[in-house]
């Protein structure tokens, strides 16, 4: 409530524009699927990397502007963001490696 009387209307509309543009770009890329991005890449395709990075950018704007994390006390924000980011990264690291292992082990056994 420390920002009780200032209006953020302009910022809100700027963020709406940013989120709309990012979503449009994502959908356009998803429909066109340029071969250079879709069929090449490190780890996964470049297209997938673009999608994941754009998603994180969108998440940043929603959390910082709409959920107003940018106006909270620094350590309150960190208590929320660092906790979530650390735990989710750890979970993904373990589980996705396991998935890759399962594929390496089981895929050769499937007869198509």
């Amino acid at each position: 409530m420390s920002h009780a009387h200032e209006s953020n209307t302009k910022r809100i509309y700027v963020v709406l524009a940013i989120l709309t543009i990012i979503t449009t770009v994502e959908v356009a890329l998803g429909i066109v699927k340029p071969a250079a991005l879709h069929l090449h890449g490190v780890g996964t395709s470049w297209l997938n990397w673009i999608f994941i990075i754009l998603t994180l950018v969108k998440a940043y704007y929603i959390a910082w502007a709409f959920m107003h994390l940018e106006g909270e006390k620094t350590w309150f924000r960190r208590a929320i963001v660092w906790t979530a980011v650390f735990l989710i990264s750890y979970l993904l690291f373990i589980i996705l490696f396991e998935g890759d292992y399962l594929n390496n082990t089981l895929a050769p056994l499937v007869k198509w």
Partner: peptide
């Protein structure tokens, strides 16, 4: 919200595991 975010992360990570498992199909 942090705890609910972890719940959803668990589901999406499980989806990721399954997808990696069947990545060729």
């Amino acid at each position: 919200i942090v705890s609910d975010a972890l719940t959803f992360s668990g589901f999406l990570a499980a989806y990721g595991l399954t997808r990696f498992k069947f990545i060729d199909s």
